[in-house]
Design a protein around this nucleic acid. Sequence first.
DNA 1: ATAATAAGTGAGTAATCACTCACTGGAGGA
DNA 2: TCCTCCAGTGAGTGATTACTCACTTATTAT
Lengths: 205, 205
Amino acid sequence: MKKRSETQQRILDAAINLFAIQGYHGTSTAQIAKAAKVAEGTIFKYYKTKKELLRSVLGYIIKELVPTIMQLPFEEILRDCSLDDPKAAIKQVLLQKVELISKNIYCVKIVINEIQYHEDLKEEYLGQLVPGFIKLMEEVYRTGVSKGVFRDINPHTAVRCFVGSFALTVLDKNLLNPQLEISREIDAILDIYINGVIEKRGSNG
Amino acid sequence: MKKRSETQQRILDAAINLFAIQGYHGTSTAQIAKAAKVAEGTIFKYYKTKKELLRSVLGYIIKELVPTIMQLPFEEILRDCSLDDPKAAIKQVLLQKVELISKNIYCVKIVINEIQYHEDLKEEYLGQLVPGFIKLMEEVYRTGVSKGVFRDINPHTAVRCFVGSFALTVLDKNLLNPQLEISREIDAILDIYINGVIEKRGSNG
DNA sequence: ATAATAAGTGAGTAATCACTCACTGGAGGA
DNA sequence: TCCTCCAGTGAGTGATTACTCACTTATTAT
């Protein structure tokens, strides 16, 4: 693996910042050069085209960030934690992921915003990753079902519901309500997801 | 309210298509003119600048679409349906919304993608709408709580969880898995949201 | 039929775009 | 001291951008 020079890293950082704020098409190479404090020509010493710079930005993000965000220690969870009360262990993992995503919310924004306009990059960078992640999550749910802990709901649906609640919570905190106490929110969404919102009047309370 | 001429409508439609596929900055006025089958100058007869065309696109979408998507017949639901089994009534409403969103997924894409790069447009078009919608949803949940139907969870969190599950399902259907049977999915997410995913072994089953 | 107005045109414009290339300055070796 | 090397430069390139305007064509009024 070749090192990135300090100059190259400055260009990459400037591109990440500007792409996140203005979008790829809304950002000129002149702006990137100015922000990175290099001449415009220097950018093209390292990256043949602007598109290749975007490719490098996405590659950088996905190589350095996504694996650590996505790779959940599922085996440990399934082995160590009592699935009768999976909340505690899962909460720790989620907290860790939230922190990582929050720290790199700019990178997440770029991936979400740009990948949809570049079909080639979508295939290149998310082709295996996202389906693999979904399958893994579904497998975890299936394990829970087979152990009699989770109800027998279609795993794809069950996982999507949880991810949806979780993702919107992360977005809520990072883009709208930074004052949200994420620990409390995770407790709440796990509670809702596990127990539902309906009041069980006849329950063993 | 002034009429839009047929030409103006063609320009608007072309802009919506191209903005949705390529993004605002990724689309040139030349492309829009070609797609709308007008001369480039004609665009600027109707819209002083390209930005104003975007403004009109967003205005058009939000005026004609968002109210019908967002305005839920809450009063009717709360009055007519038995809240002990709110699923049936809510499901009908959701199905209707999904259809509307799916039909206009291009418009939804534009709002989501472009509004974040134009702070002025965000204020102008979503300033009151989104907070208003959230408050309304929270009020519905609060009503459910006060009637003893829903558990006493923070309404903001409860609403966000449901909206997250619902939104990701709609995205899943429209962008990844068009074969999803949305009626079944809505049943499932309402079931999960209401009852949770945990297997109740000691329950009255 | 003719004048008046509106709708639509497309070549033209300055600015900006991504990208090039002949050049510079400085570090390291002989 | 001189040569080699190369990261870094920035004026310059043709293409493309959003936008203009003098003009033509279509529509309506008289």
